[in-house]
Design a protein around this nucleic acid. Structure first.
Lengths: 163, 163
DNA sequence: TCGCTGAGTATAGAAAAGTAAACTCAGGCA
DNA sequence: TGCCTGAGTTTACTTTTCTATACTCAGCGA
C-alpha cells in the first residue's frame, strides 16, 4: 500500500510462502468455509451439513476429511438412545482461529450485499450483548485505520529464484 | 456456537441470504484474493499481476473485469513516456473493506503455516510501527474472545421454503 | 437373523473452471 | 509503412466440481 511496501514487496518476490495463499490452499475450495460456518452455528453431523448446505456428499466427505486432517475439526462420537455410536465433527482451537477471517467476509457481506432489512445473522458479544465487528489493532493498542497499514518484508521474505 | 445459536440458527434456515456465502460468490474464486493481495502490495498493471501471480491471462482478465464490475477495483490510465495510455487498476474504498477478511486469512497462515523463520510479509501500523493483527471487538468496546461470540438470527433471518 | 439408519463410498455423465499457447489490436516510433 | 509492446481475446485441452443414483457397512432392536 505504501510506497515503501510498493518498493520492497516487488514483482520478483517469492510468493510460495505467502500466508494468505497457504491458508487459501486449505480453506479456499468450494464448500469448506460454508462447512465451518455451519459448525460455528451449531451443526456437527454429516447429515446436518448435507441438509443445510445441500452440497454433494462426496465433496462433503472429502472436505470434512481434509478439515480433520488439518486439525481444524476433530471427530468425536455421539450416541442417540437406541442407536449405535456415530461420528460427529467439532471445531478445534485451530479452527476457531479462522473465525476472524470468516467474520471479516461476513462483515463485508453485511455492508455491501445484505438484504434491505439487514443481515440474516448477527454476531454479538455473549457477555454484554453488543454487536461485534472485526477490527485491525496494533500491538501498542491503537485502532489502525485500513489505510494506515503498511506491508513490509518479514523474516521469511525471499526473492523468486531467477530463471 | 452457543446453545441459543444452535437452537435458533437451525437446519431449516434459508441460507441464500448468508453474508459469508454472498461475499464468497465475489471473492471466492481462484486468484481473486491473490489479485487483491497484489493490489494491496502495490501492483496495478495487467502485466504486473500476470508476472507476480503466474496466472493465466484469460482468468486474470475475467477476475479484473469482475472486480471492477463489483466496484472493488477501479480503472484509471497511466502513460509511460513514449508509450500510449494504458489502463491500470486501483483499489476502491469498497475494496479496502476486504482488508480485514484478507488479514484474517494472513494471520491464520502466519500462525499455522509459516516457515520456521516466520512470515514472508509483516503488516505494521504506519504511524507507530507496531505489528498489527485482526481482533474482534464489540460496540461497547470490549475485546471479544473467539469463544464469547454468539450468533443470532438477524432482521433478514428466514426459514427455508418447505418442499 | 433381518431390517433400519446414519454415514459414508463408488461411479458415471455433464458443467464449470483452470491452463497453455496462439492470436488480435491500438498507438507510438523508427 | 512496418515493428514493438502492453493488454487483452480465442481456442483447444485438462482438471475439478456438480448432480444423481446405487451401493456398502456396522450395530441396535424386533
Amino acid at each position: 500500500m505504501s510506497d515503501a511496501a510498493g518498493q520492497d514487496l516487488h514483482l520478483d518476490r517469492d510468493t510460495t510462502n505467502c500466508s494468505i495463499a497457504r491458508t487459501l490452499e486449505i480453506v479456499g475450495e468450494k464448500w469448506t468455509i460454508l462447512i465451518l460456518r455451519e459448525v460455528w452455528y451449531g451443526s456437527s453431523r454429516f447429515s446436518e451439513f448435507e441438509r443445510v448446505l445441500g452440497c454433494p456428499r462426496n465433496l462433503l466427505a472429502e472436505r470434512l476429511r481434509m478439515l480433520v486432517e488439518q486439525g481444524i475439526l476433530a471427530t468425536e462420537t455421539y450416541k442417540e438412545p437406541g442407536a449405535r455410536s456415530r461420528p460427529k465433527y467439532v471445531i478445534t482451537a485451530k479452527g476457531m482461529d479462522l473465525v476472524p477471517a470468516v467474520m471479516g467476509l461476513m462483515q463485508w457481506g453485511d455492508k455491501y450485499r445484505a438484504d434491505p432489512e439487514g443481515p440474516a445473522v448477527e454476531a454479538r458479544h455473549r457477555d454484554c450483548g453488543g454487536h461485534v465487528d472485526v477490527r485491525i489493532r496494533c500491538d501498542r493498542n491503537h485502532d489502525v485505520p485500513l489505510d494506515a497499514i503498511e506491508s513490509l518484508p518479514g523474516p521469511a521474505f525471499r526473492l523468486r529464484p531467477t530463471g
